[in-house]
Design a protein around this nucleic acid. Structure first.
Lengths: 191, 191
DNA sequence: AGCCAACCGGACGGGGGCGTCCGTTACGGT
DNA sequence: ACCGTAACGGACGCCCCCGTCCGGTTGGCT
Protein backbone atom coordinates (compact mmCIF):
# COMPACT_ATOMS: atom_id res chain seq x y z
CA UNK A 1 0.00 0.00 0.00
CA UNK A 2 1.30 3.47 -0.82
CA UNK A 3 1.69 5.71 2.17
CA UNK A 4 -0.25 8.80 1.18
CA UNK A 5 1.93 11.90 1.24
CA UNK A 6 0.71 15.11 2.82
CA UNK A 7 -1.98 16.80 0.76
CA UNK A 8 -0.50 20.22 1.45
CA UNK A 9 2.40 21.28 -0.75
CA UNK A 10 4.91 23.74 0.55
CA UNK A 11 4.07 27.33 -0.38
CA UNK A 12 6.81 27.66 -3.00
CA UNK A 13 5.88 24.33 -4.54
CA UNK A 14 2.24 25.31 -4.78
CA UNK A 15 3.19 28.62 -6.37
CA UNK A 16 5.48 26.97 -8.87
CA UNK A 17 2.91 24.40 -9.82
CA UNK A 18 0.39 27.13 -10.57
CA UNK A 19 2.89 29.12 -12.64
CA UNK A 20 3.86 25.98 -14.56
CA UNK A 21 0.26 25.26 -15.47
CA UNK A 22 -0.32 28.86 -16.55
CA UNK A 23 2.82 28.77 -18.67
CA UNK A 24 1.86 25.43 -20.17
CA UNK A 25 -1.50 26.83 -21.17
CA UNK A 26 0.14 29.86 -22.80
CA UNK A 27 2.94 28.00 -24.56
CA UNK A 28 0.87 25.04 -25.75
CA UNK A 29 -1.90 27.39 -26.87
CA UNK A 30 0.52 29.35 -29.03
CA UNK A 31 2.73 26.60 -30.39
CA UNK A 32 0.78 23.39 -29.99
CA UNK A 33 1.88 20.28 -28.14
CA UNK A 34 5.09 20.18 -30.18
CA UNK A 35 6.51 22.89 -27.94
CA UNK A 36 9.38 21.57 -25.80
CA UNK A 37 8.75 21.03 -22.11
CA UNK A 38 11.81 23.14 -21.31
CA UNK A 39 10.17 26.12 -22.94
CA UNK A 40 7.25 25.80 -20.57
CA UNK A 41 9.73 25.60 -17.70
CA UNK A 42 11.62 28.69 -18.89
CA UNK A 43 8.35 30.59 -19.35
CA UNK A 44 7.46 29.72 -15.76
CA UNK A 45 10.89 30.77 -14.48
CA UNK A 46 11.51 27.26 -13.21
CA UNK A 47 14.13 24.58 -13.75
CA UNK A 48 13.24 21.53 -15.84
CA UNK A 49 13.60 19.20 -12.87
CA UNK A 50 10.98 21.15 -10.95
CA UNK A 51 8.52 20.79 -13.77
CA UNK A 52 9.21 17.08 -14.09
CA UNK A 53 8.73 16.59 -10.36
CA UNK A 54 5.24 18.05 -10.55
CA UNK A 55 4.42 16.33 -13.83
CA UNK A 56 6.59 13.25 -14.34
CA UNK A 57 5.93 13.08 -18.05
CA UNK A 58 4.87 15.44 -20.80
CA UNK A 59 1.62 13.54 -21.06
CA UNK A 60 0.82 14.30 -17.44
CA UNK A 61 1.56 17.97 -17.96
CA UNK A 62 -0.76 18.08 -20.96
CA UNK A 63 -3.52 16.27 -19.14
CA UNK A 64 -3.36 18.65 -16.18
CA UNK A 65 -3.06 21.67 -18.44
CA UNK A 66 -6.20 20.99 -20.44
CA UNK A 67 -8.44 19.53 -17.75
CA UNK A 68 -10.22 22.88 -17.54
CA UNK A 69 -10.65 23.22 -21.30
CA UNK A 70 -11.98 19.68 -21.34
CA UNK A 71 -14.63 20.69 -18.83
CA UNK A 72 -15.46 23.72 -20.95
CA UNK A 73 -15.82 21.47 -23.96
CA UNK A 74 -18.18 19.18 -22.13
CA UNK A 75 -20.19 22.22 -21.06
CA UNK A 76 -20.49 23.42 -24.64
CA UNK A 77 -21.81 20.05 -25.72
CA UNK A 78 -24.19 19.82 -22.80
CA UNK A 79 -25.66 23.23 -23.54
CA UNK A 80 -25.91 22.48 -27.25
CA UNK A 81 -27.78 19.25 -26.58
CA UNK A 82 -30.07 21.01 -24.12
CA UNK A 83 -31.02 23.68 -26.67
CA UNK A 84 -34.73 23.42 -27.45
CA UNK A 85 -33.97 24.26 -31.10
CA UNK A 86 -31.82 21.34 -32.25
CA UNK A 87 -30.49 23.15 -35.34
CA UNK A 88 -29.49 26.16 -33.25
CA UNK A 89 -27.90 23.76 -30.80
CA UNK A 90 -26.06 22.02 -33.59
CA UNK A 91 -24.64 25.29 -34.86
CA UNK A 92 -23.68 26.32 -31.34
CA UNK A 93 -21.88 23.02 -30.90
CA UNK A 94 -19.74 23.49 -33.99
CA UNK A 95 -19.07 27.15 -33.26
CA UNK A 96 -18.34 26.42 -29.62
CA UNK A 97 -15.90 23.60 -30.17
CA UNK A 98 -14.16 25.47 -32.96
CA UNK A 99 -13.85 28.50 -30.71
CA UNK A 100 -12.33 26.41 -27.94
CA UNK A 101 -9.90 24.76 -30.33
CA UNK A 102 -9.05 28.10 -31.92
CA UNK A 103 -8.02 29.52 -28.57
CA UNK A 104 -5.47 26.77 -28.04
CA UNK A 105 -3.67 24.77 -30.64
CA UNK A 106 -2.52 22.49 -27.88
CA UNK A 107 -6.05 21.66 -26.81
CA UNK A 108 -7.04 20.99 -30.40
CA UNK A 109 -4.05 18.67 -30.77
CA UNK A 110 -4.83 16.85 -27.54
CA UNK A 111 -8.54 16.58 -28.31
CA UNK A 112 -7.98 15.18 -31.76
CA UNK A 113 -5.20 12.94 -30.47
CA UNK A 114 -3.15 14.00 -33.43
CA UNK A 115 -0.29 13.45 -31.05
CA UNK A 116 -0.10 9.73 -30.34
CA UNK A 117 1.51 10.36 -26.98
CA UNK A 118 -1.07 12.89 -25.95
CA UNK A 119 -3.46 12.48 -23.10
CA UNK A 120 -6.25 9.99 -23.52
CA UNK A 121 -9.35 11.97 -24.40
CA UNK A 122 -10.93 8.95 -26.01
CA UNK A 123 -13.57 8.27 -23.40
CA UNK A 124 -14.67 11.89 -23.45
CA UNK A 125 -14.67 12.02 -27.20
CA UNK A 126 -16.74 8.89 -27.48
CA UNK A 127 -19.35 10.21 -25.10
CA UNK A 128 -19.40 13.61 -26.78
CA UNK A 129 -19.85 12.00 -30.16
CA UNK A 130 -22.80 10.02 -28.90
CA UNK A 131 -24.44 13.18 -27.60
CA UNK A 132 -23.70 15.03 -30.82
CA UNK A 133 -25.16 12.18 -32.81
CA UNK A 134 -28.41 12.46 -30.86
CA UNK A 135 -28.50 16.21 -31.44
CA UNK A 136 -27.84 15.77 -35.15
CA UNK A 137 -30.64 13.26 -35.45
CA UNK A 138 -33.09 15.72 -33.92
CA UNK A 139 -31.85 18.52 -36.15
CA UNK A 140 -32.40 16.29 -39.15
CA UNK A 141 -35.90 15.41 -38.02
CA UNK A 142 -36.59 19.13 -37.74
CA UNK A 143 -35.61 19.41 -41.40
CA UNK A 144 -32.81 21.88 -40.77
CA UNK A 145 -29.77 19.62 -40.95
CA UNK A 146 -29.18 17.95 -44.32
CA UNK A 147 -30.13 14.25 -44.36
CA UNK A 148 -26.73 13.14 -45.63
CA UNK A 149 -24.95 14.28 -42.48
CA UNK A 150 -23.30 11.57 -40.39
CA UNK A 151 -21.42 11.83 -37.11
CA UNK A 152 -18.10 11.19 -38.80
CA UNK A 153 -18.62 14.50 -40.56
CA UNK A 154 -18.18 16.20 -37.20
CA UNK A 155 -14.79 14.57 -36.85
CA UNK A 156 -14.07 15.65 -40.40
CA UNK A 157 -14.83 19.25 -39.45
CA UNK A 158 -12.66 19.07 -36.35
CA UNK A 159 -9.73 17.52 -38.20
CA UNK A 160 -10.02 20.14 -40.91
CA UNK A 161 -10.33 22.87 -38.33
CA UNK A 162 -7.07 21.74 -36.79
CA UNK A 163 -5.42 22.47 -40.11
CA UNK A 164 -6.73 26.03 -39.99
CA UNK A 165 -4.80 26.56 -36.77
CA UNK A 166 -1.55 26.46 -38.73
CA UNK A 167 -2.30 29.88 -40.19
CA UNK A 168 -0.49 32.99 -38.91
CA UNK A 169 -1.53 33.69 -35.31
CA UNK A 170 -3.08 37.08 -36.05
CA UNK A 171 -5.51 35.57 -38.57
CA UNK A 172 -6.26 32.32 -36.75
CA UNK A 173 -9.37 33.38 -34.90
CA UNK A 174 -11.02 35.07 -37.87
CA UNK A 175 -10.13 32.15 -40.13
CA UNK A 176 -11.51 29.71 -37.58
CA UNK A 177 -14.85 31.52 -37.36
CA UNK A 178 -15.10 31.89 -41.12
CA UNK A 179 -14.41 28.20 -41.52
CA UNK A 180 -17.02 27.23 -38.95
CA UNK A 181 -19.57 29.43 -40.72
CA UNK A 182 -18.85 27.80 -44.07
CA UNK A 183 -19.18 24.31 -42.65
CA UNK A 184 -22.47 25.16 -41.00
CA UNK A 185 -23.67 26.48 -44.33
CA UNK A 186 -22.63 23.25 -45.96
CA UNK A 187 -24.55 21.23 -43.38
CA UNK A 188 -27.74 23.25 -43.69
CA UNK A 189 -30.61 21.39 -45.34
CA UNK A 190 -31.62 22.75 -48.76
CA UNK A 191 -35.43 22.86 -48.93
CA UNK B 1 33.65 29.82 -63.20
CA UNK B 2 32.45 26.36 -62.28
CA UNK B 3 33.66 23.65 -64.63
CA UNK B 4 30.44 21.92 -65.65
CA UNK B 5 30.53 18.25 -64.75
CA UNK B 6 29.51 15.61 -67.28
CA UNK B 7 25.76 15.49 -67.72
CA UNK B 8 25.82 11.70 -67.81
CA UNK B 9 25.85 9.96 -64.44
CA UNK B 10 27.27 6.53 -64.09
CA UNK B 11 24.68 3.78 -64.51
CA UNK B 12 24.55 2.84 -60.84
CA UNK B 13 24.32 6.48 -59.82
CA UNK B 14 21.47 7.09 -62.23
CA UNK B 15 19.69 4.00 -60.94
CA UNK B 16 20.13 5.01 -57.32
CA UNK B 17 18.92 8.53 -57.99
CA UNK B 18 15.74 7.19 -59.54
CA UNK B 19 15.13 4.79 -56.67
CA UNK B 20 15.73 7.57 -54.16
CA UNK B 21 13.16 9.81 -55.81
CA UNK B 22 10.62 6.99 -55.94
CA UNK B 23 11.21 6.21 -52.28
CA UNK B 24 10.96 9.87 -51.35
CA UNK B 25 7.61 10.11 -53.09
CA UNK B 26 6.35 7.02 -51.29
CA UNK B 27 7.67 7.90 -47.83
CA UNK B 28 6.78 11.59 -47.92
CA UNK B 29 3.36 10.77 -49.32
CA UNK B 30 2.65 8.43 -46.44
CA UNK B 31 4.23 10.28 -43.53
CA UNK B 32 4.58 13.88 -44.65
CA UNK B 33 7.74 15.91 -44.77
CA UNK B 34 8.45 15.10 -41.12
CA UNK B 35 9.73 11.69 -42.21
CA UNK B 36 13.50 11.36 -41.63
CA UNK B 37 15.77 11.44 -44.64
CA UNK B 38 17.37 8.19 -43.52
CA UNK B 39 14.06 6.45 -43.85
CA UNK B 40 13.93 7.46 -47.49
CA UNK B 41 17.48 6.15 -47.89
CA UNK B 42 16.60 2.83 -46.21
CA UNK B 43 13.48 2.50 -48.34
CA UNK B 44 15.66 2.99 -51.42
CA UNK B 45 18.24 0.47 -50.19
CA UNK B 46 20.91 3.15 -50.18
CA UNK B 47 23.25 4.66 -47.61
CA UNK B 48 22.55 8.14 -46.25
CA UNK B 49 25.70 9.55 -47.83
CA UNK B 50 24.54 8.48 -51.28
CA UNK B 51 21.26 10.26 -50.83
CA UNK B 52 22.98 13.41 -49.58
CA UNK B 53 25.36 13.36 -52.54
CA UNK B 54 22.46 13.47 -54.97
CA UNK B 55 20.45 15.92 -52.87
CA UNK B 56 22.74 17.95 -50.60
CA UNK B 57 19.92 19.03 -48.30
CA UNK B 58 16.47 17.80 -47.37
CA UNK B 59 15.03 20.84 -49.06
CA UNK B 60 16.62 19.82 -52.36
CA UNK B 61 15.25 16.31 -52.03
CA UNK B 62 11.77 17.66 -51.42
CA UNK B 63 11.98 20.06 -54.34
CA UNK B 64 13.10 17.32 -56.73
CA UNK B 65 10.54 14.89 -55.34
CA UNK B 66 7.54 17.11 -55.90
CA UNK B 67 8.52 18.84 -59.13
CA UNK B 68 6.19 16.50 -60.98
CA UNK B 69 3.28 17.04 -58.59
CA UNK B 70 3.87 20.77 -58.89
CA UNK B 71 3.49 20.49 -62.66
CA UNK B 72 0.32 18.46 -62.17
CA UNK B 73 -0.99 21.16 -59.88
CA UNK B 74 -0.30 23.86 -62.43
CA UNK B 75 -2.06 21.74 -65.05
CA UNK B 76 -5.13 21.38 -62.85
CA UNK B 77 -5.31 25.14 -62.40
CA UNK B 78 -4.74 25.81 -66.08
CA UNK B 79 -7.54 23.46 -67.09
CA UNK B 80 -9.87 24.86 -64.47
CA UNK B 81 -9.30 28.41 -65.68
CA UNK B 82 -9.76 27.33 -69.28
CA UNK B 83 -13.14 25.72 -68.53
CA UNK B 84 -15.88 27.58 -70.42
CA UNK B 85 -18.19 27.13 -67.41
CA UNK B 86 -16.44 29.09 -64.63
CA UNK B 87 -18.42 27.45 -61.84
CA UNK B 88 -17.61 23.99 -63.15
CA UNK B 89 -13.98 25.11 -63.47
CA UNK B 90 -14.03 26.40 -59.92
CA UNK B 91 -15.32 23.11 -58.60
CA UNK B 92 -12.76 21.20 -60.65
CA UNK B 93 -10.03 23.38 -59.21
CA UNK B 94 -10.98 22.62 -55.62
CA UNK B 95 -11.52 18.93 -56.30
CA UNK B 96 -8.33 18.68 -58.31
CA UNK B 97 -6.05 20.35 -55.80
CA UNK B 98 -7.60 18.43 -52.92
CA UNK B 99 -7.12 15.19 -54.82
CA UNK B 100 -3.46 16.00 -55.45
CA UNK B 101 -2.90 16.92 -51.81
CA UNK B 102 -4.77 13.85 -50.65
CA UNK B 103 -2.46 11.58 -52.59
CA UNK B 104 0.60 12.96 -50.83
CA UNK B 105 0.80 14.48 -47.40
CA UNK B 106 4.27 15.62 -48.28
CA UNK B 107 3.10 17.58 -51.27
CA UNK B 108 0.37 19.20 -49.24
CA UNK B 109 2.93 20.16 -46.60
CA UNK B 110 5.33 21.55 -49.18
CA UNK B 111 2.61 23.41 -51.04
CA UNK B 112 1.21 25.03 -47.92
CA UNK B 113 4.72 25.71 -46.64
CA UNK B 114 3.58 24.42 -43.30
CA UNK B 115 7.18 23.33 -42.99
CA UNK B 116 9.29 26.48 -42.75
CA UNK B 117 12.26 24.66 -44.25
CA UNK B 118 10.27 23.30 -47.14
CA UNK B 119 10.88 24.14 -50.74
CA UNK B 120 9.88 27.58 -51.90
CA UNK B 121 6.56 27.19 -53.67
CA UNK B 122 5.71 30.82 -53.06
CA UNK B 123 6.08 32.04 -56.63
CA UNK B 124 3.90 29.23 -57.90
CA UNK B 125 1.34 29.73 -55.21
CA UNK B 126 1.13 33.45 -55.89
CA UNK B 127 0.57 32.91 -59.59
CA UNK B 128 -1.95 30.14 -58.97
CA UNK B 129 -3.86 32.34 -56.56
CA UNK B 130 -4.04 35.11 -59.13
CA UNK B 131 -5.46 32.71 -61.71
CA UNK B 132 -7.91 31.28 -59.18
CA UNK B 133 -9.00 34.77 -58.26
CA UNK B 134 -9.83 35.50 -61.88
CA UNK B 135 -11.78 32.26 -62.15
CA UNK B 136 -13.69 33.01 -58.96
CA UNK B 137 -14.63 36.46 -60.23
CA UNK B 138 -16.11 34.96 -63.39
CA UNK B 139 -17.96 32.29 -61.41
CA UNK B 140 -19.42 35.04 -59.23
CA UNK B 141 -20.50 37.04 -62.29
CA UNK B 142 -22.20 33.90 -63.57
CA UNK B 143 -24.18 33.88 -60.32
CA UNK B 144 -23.00 30.42 -59.29
CA UNK B 145 -20.33 31.30 -56.73
CA UNK B 146 -21.57 33.11 -53.64
CA UNK B 147 -20.70 36.81 -53.63
CA UNK B 148 -18.99 36.70 -50.23
CA UNK B 149 -16.23 34.43 -51.49
CA UNK B 150 -12.71 35.86 -51.43
CA UNK B 151 -9.45 34.32 -52.58
CA UNK B 152 -8.26 33.85 -49.02
CA UNK B 153 -11.09 31.37 -48.65
CA UNK B 154 -9.24 29.11 -51.06
CA UNK B 155 -6.23 29.17 -48.74
CA UNK B 156 -8.61 28.49 -45.89
CA UNK B 157 -9.88 25.40 -47.68
CA UNK B 158 -6.38 24.16 -48.43
CA UNK B 159 -5.18 24.69 -44.87
CA UNK B 160 -8.23 22.91 -43.54
CA UNK B 161 -7.79 20.14 -46.07
CA UNK B 162 -4.27 19.59 -44.79
CA UNK B 163 -5.76 18.83 -41.40
CA UNK B 164 -7.92 16.13 -42.96
CA UNK B 165 -4.75 14.35 -44.06
CA UNK B 166 -4.03 13.46 -40.44
CA UNK B 167 -6.84 10.92 -40.47
CA UNK B 168 -6.09 7.19 -40.69
CA UNK B 169 -4.58 6.38 -44.11
CA UNK B 170 -7.40 4.08 -45.18
CA UNK B 171 -10.01 6.81 -44.73
CA UNK B 172 -7.96 9.74 -46.02
CA UNK B 173 -9.08 9.72 -49.62
CA UNK B 174 -12.77 9.35 -48.88
CA UNK B 175 -12.58 12.00 -46.17
CA UNK B 176 -10.76 14.33 -48.52
CA UNK B 177 -13.39 13.99 -51.22
CA UNK B 178 -16.24 14.39 -48.76
CA UNK B 179 -14.61 17.51 -47.38
CA UNK B 180 -14.12 19.00 -50.84
CA UNK B 181 -17.76 18.33 -51.65
CA UNK B 182 -18.92 20.06 -48.46
CA UNK B 183 -16.76 23.10 -49.14
CA UNK B 184 -18.04 23.38 -52.70
CA UNK B 185 -21.56 23.21 -51.31
CA UNK B 186 -20.74 25.99 -48.91
CA UNK B 187 -19.37 28.15 -51.72
CA UNK B 188 -22.37 27.65 -53.99
CA UNK B 189 -24.52 30.76 -54.44
CA UNK B 190 -27.99 30.50 -52.87
CA UNK B 191 -30.52 31.93 -55.35
C1' DA C 1 42.54 -7.20 -68.70
C1' DG C 2 43.73 -3.10 -66.29
C1' DC C 3 43.34 1.35 -64.47
C1' DC C 4 41.32 5.60 -62.75
C1' DA C 5 37.81 8.14 -61.44
C1' DA C 6 33.27 8.21 -59.93
C1' DC C 7 30.55 6.23 -56.66
C1' DC C 8 29.08 3.87 -52.39
C1' DG C 9 28.07 3.46 -47.37
C1' DG C 10 29.42 2.79 -42.47
C1' DA C 11 30.98 5.77 -39.00
C1' DC C 12 31.29 10.37 -37.15
C1' DG C 13 30.15 15.17 -35.24
C1' DG C 14 26.60 18.59 -34.01
C1' DG C 15 22.16 19.94 -32.23
C1' DG C 16 17.86 19.44 -29.78
C1' DG C 17 14.35 17.26 -26.93
C1' DC C 18 12.93 14.07 -22.98
C1' DG C 19 13.61 12.56 -18.52
C1' DT C 20 17.05 11.92 -14.24
C1' DC C 21 20.62 12.72 -10.49
C1' DC C 22 22.60 15.12 -6.77
C1' DG C 23 24.48 19.08 -4.36
C1' DT C 24 22.20 23.33 -2.68
C1' DT C 25 18.44 26.26 -0.95
C1' DA C 26 14.74 27.67 1.88
C1' DC C 27 10.22 26.54 4.07
C1' DG C 28 8.06 25.75 8.47
C1' DG C 29 7.56 23.49 12.79
C1' DT C 30 9.77 23.51 17.41
C1' DA D 1 17.17 30.75 16.28
C1' DC D 2 17.66 26.01 14.79
C1' DC D 3 17.24 21.99 12.24
C1' DG D 4 15.17 18.35 9.29
C1' DT D 5 13.27 17.78 5.18
C1' DA D 6 10.73 19.03 1.12
C1' DA D 7 11.72 21.45 -2.89
C1' DC D 8 14.85 23.51 -6.32
C1' DG D 9 17.76 23.60 -10.60
C1' DG D 10 22.14 23.00 -13.17
C1' DA D 11 24.31 19.26 -15.32
C1' DC D 12 24.01 14.78 -17.15
C1' DG D 13 22.80 10.54 -20.19
C1' DC D 14 20.05 8.91 -23.83
C1' DC D 15 17.92 8.91 -28.28
C1' DC D 16 16.74 10.71 -32.85
C1' DC D 17 17.69 13.52 -36.79
C1' DC D 18 20.55 16.28 -40.13
C1' DG D 19 24.61 16.58 -42.71
C1' DT D 20 29.87 15.11 -43.50
C1' DC D 21 34.22 12.28 -44.05
C1' DC D 22 37.05 8.61 -45.63
C1' DG D 23 38.37 3.95 -46.89
C1' DG D 24 36.54 0.43 -49.89
C1' DT D 25 34.08 -0.83 -54.33
C1' DT D 26 32.56 -0.75 -59.03
C1' DG D 27 31.55 1.08 -63.54
C1' DG D 28 33.40 2.14 -68.04
C1' DC D 29 37.02 3.42 -71.15
C1' DT D 30 41.43 2.04 -73.34
Amino acid sequence: MTAHLPHTLRSDARDNRARILDSARAVFAEEGLAAPVRQVARHAGVGPATLYRHFPTKRDLIAATFAEQQRACRAVIREAVADPDPWHGFRSLIEGICELHAHSRGFADAFMASFPEAVDFDADREQSLRAASELARRAQEAGRLRPGFVVDDLILVLMAHRGVQDMPPDTRLAASRRFAAYMIDAFRATP
